[in-house]
C-alpha cells in the first residue's frame, strides 16, 4: 500500500508537470534531434540573426524595454521569460501535496531558494553540447554565439552548458524530472513532506532505470553542483547591476536574488 501511495504521488506530480511545463523533455529532445520535420527552430548563431528572431520572442508575449543595444534587449527578453517561468514553477509548487498547507512565509522561502535551481534543471533537457532551445523551443541559440557575446554576458551560460551536458547523461524521463523538481523545491522544508517525495523519486528511478546503478544518489549529488551554479549566477547578476548602468532587473527576479547567498 505504501508503494501504491508513492506511485500515485508520482502520477499526480507528472500530471501537474505536464500542465505547467508544456515543453517537456521528450518534446525538446525531438526538436533537438531534428525529428519535428518542417517545424525546425529558428537558429541564433550571430548578432545579425538576433533581431531577425525577435519576432519569435514577440509572439510569446514578452515585453521588451526600449533599448538600442541588441544584447541588452535580448537580456530583457530573457528576464521576462525567466519571470514567467518563475510563475509556472510557483503553480507547480502549489500542486505538490502539502505545500500550500505550509506557512506562507515558509512557502516564500522554499520558492526563493529553490526556484533558480529548478529553472536550471528544467533548462538542461533543452540543451545539448552545441546550444540551447529558448522561447518555448522556437529558437535554437548556439553555444558559440553565447560565448562570443561581450563580457560579462559571455560568462553567463557556459557553466550551465557544462552542467547540463553531464546531467543529461543520467537520461531521466519527464516523470523522473517531475519528482526531482518537487524534491528540489521541498529540500529546505522541515516537515515530513520532503521524505515522502524523495522516497517516491527513489522508487521511481528504480522502476524506470533498473540497470542504472546508484542513480538516486547521482541525482541527489546534482543538487550540490546546482547550489554552486546558482551562487555564481546570482553573483554575476549582482555584478551586472553594478556595471551595466542602463540595465534594469525585473522586480520579481530582484526579489528572489536579494539576500540570496
Amino acid at each position: 500500500p505504501e508503494a501504491a501511495d508513492l506511485r500515485s504521488l508520482a502520477k499526480l506530480l507528472l500530471e501537474s508537470y505536464l500542465k505547467y511545463f508544456p515543453l517537456t523533455k521528450a518534446k525538446a529532445r525531438a526538436i533537438l534531434s531534428g525529428k519535428t520535420g518542417d517545424n525546425a527552430p529558428f537558429v541564433y548563431h550571430d548578432m545579425k540573426s538576433l533581431p531577425e528572431g525577435e519576432r519569435f520572442i514577440n509572439c510569446v508575449g514578452l515585453v521588451q524595454e526600449p533599448t538600442d543595444e541588441v544584447q541588452l534587449r535580448f537580456f530583457y527578453s530573457c528576464q521576462s521569460r525567466s519571470a514567467e517561468a518563475v510563475r509556472e514553477v510557483t503553480e507547480f509548487a502549489k500542486s505538490i501535496p502539502g505545500f500550500v498547507g505550509l506557512d506562507l512565509n515558509d512557502q516564500v522561502t522554499l520558492l526563493k531558494y529553490g526556484v533558480i535551481e529548478v529553472l536550471i534543471i528544467m533548462w538542461a533537457p533543452l540543451m545539448n553540447k552545441d546550444g540551447t532551445l529558448i522561447s518555448y523551443g522556437q529558437i535554437f541559440m548556439t553555444r558559440e554565439f553565447l560565448k562570443s557575446l561581450r563580457k560579462p554576458f559571455c560568462d553567463m551560460m557556459e557553466p550551465k552548458f557544462e552542467f547540463s551536458v553531464k546531467f543529461n547523461t543520467l537520461e531521466l524521463y519527464d516523470s523522473d524530472m517531475a519528482l526531482f523538481l518537487a524534491v528540489i523545491i521541498l529540500s529546505g522544508a522541515i516537515e515530513e513532506l520532503p521524505e515522502t517525495v524523495s522516497t517516491s523519486l527513489e522508487l521511481q528511478l528504480k522502476l524506470n532505470h533498473p540497470d542504472s546503478l546508484q542513480l538516486f544518489a547521482k541525482v541527489l549529488q546534482k543538487m550540490t553542483d546546482l547550489r554552486q551554479i546558482v551562487t555564481d549566477h546570482v553573483h554575476l547578476i549582482q555584478l551586472l547591476k553594478k556595471t551595466e548602468v542602463d540595465m534594469c532587473l525585473h522586480p520579481l527576479l530582484q526579489e528572489i536574488m536579494r539576500d540570496l547567498y
Partner: peptide, 20 residues
Amino acid sequence: KEKHKILHRLLQNSTSPVEL
C-alpha cells in the same frame, strides 16, 4: 513580507504574464 510581495502574490493567486 514587503520584501517578497510578488512572490506572496504568486503564491496566493495566479498572476498573468502581463501583470508580471
